[in-house]
Simulated assay, not measured.
Amino acid sequence: MTEQTEWLPRDVDEEIPSAARIYDYLLGGAHNFAADRRLGEKFIAALPSARHVARLNRAFLRRAVLTLSEAGIRQFIDIGSGIPTVGNVHEIAREADPDSKVVYVDNEPVAVAHSELLLRDDPNAAMLQADLLDPEGVFGHPRTAKLLDLSRPVGLLMVGVLHFAAPEHNPAEVMRRYREALPAGSYLAVSHFTADIRPQDMREVSEVMRQSADPIYPRSRSEIAELFEGFELLDPGVVGTALWRPEDESYADEPGASQIYAGVGYKK
């Protein structure tokens, strides 16, 4: 099997779009199928700023990881890590310390397969196929236990993933379980779609995503802030991705600058 095709699991149904592959498409990646691209175009039609929103979300991930690295975090768990693209968490974290360790977690087979291919020669990174709704499965996985010292602080990244948790999944309760699993001194980074901005567009986006394997559930700023219960929010709190410690103030003028809220919290 060639390296170009190793990322494609044999049992993947290419006709069922997935959020991870649509996100890859919006970011300009190549690990997506025709069905993903068709739905991605519908996503853009519903939310014309979609590509900007995706890039701003990816840029928030980078700034959050750098912030945690500056705070001394050297081990990370990236839930809903998606399909690897430029600027993966381990690449960013190792700008601060080449020995930083990362556990990636996703339930999308293409994301898992491609990540395993990327990381196969990396002793300080691992990929798990697991569900974001199963904190115990993530923290209790043998690969997590082998790679990370869970008695020491961890950077938990949940960037662009909790909006896939339906209301009946009680994401606040899921986050309570993650918080309890984290040692003191850990950090949590979250970004999440909202309908506070352009509500009609987001209703249409939600309708589009119901045609995929991964419906989305946008939430209000107050609902997203509740996900940080038990954490101390870092300044500037829960704000649009472009407004969270921007490297360039012009980010605030980008289309879709606040279509996704973002924040970082600290567990004492």
Rank of each mutant, 00 (worst) to 15 (best):
L8N: 00
E15G: 11
P17M: 06
R21N: 07
I22Y: 04
G29H: 06
H31F: 14
F33K: 02
K42S: 12
I44F: 10
H52T: 15
L56T: 10
N57K: 02
N57M: 04
R58K: 11
R63H: 09
L66H: 15
A71N: 08
G72H: 01
G72I: 04
I77C: 11
I77D: 08
G80I: 07
G80T: 12
P84I: 11
I92S: 02
I92G: 01
E95F: 11
D97K: 06
V102A: 01
N107F: 13
V112C: 02
V112H: 07
S115N: 05
E116A: 14
L117C: 12
D121W: 14
A125D: 07
L128I: 10
Q129H: 12
A130R: 14
G140D: 08
H141L: 01
T144K: 03
S151W: 01
G155M: 07
V159S: 00
H163R: 02
P167S: 01
E173M: 12
R177W: 05
R177D: 12
L182D: 13
L182Y: 09
P183I: 03
Y187I: 08
A189W: 07
T194A: 00
P199K: 07
V205R: 03
S206F: 10
M209Y: 15
I216G: 01
P218R: 04
R221Y: 05
E223G: 04
E223L: 05
I224T: 12
A225V: 13
F228H: 06
F231S: 02
E232S: 14
L233G: 05
D235N: 10
V238W: 05
A242L: 06
A242S: 07
L243H: 15
Y251K: 03
P255Y: 07
A257N: 08
I260S: 12
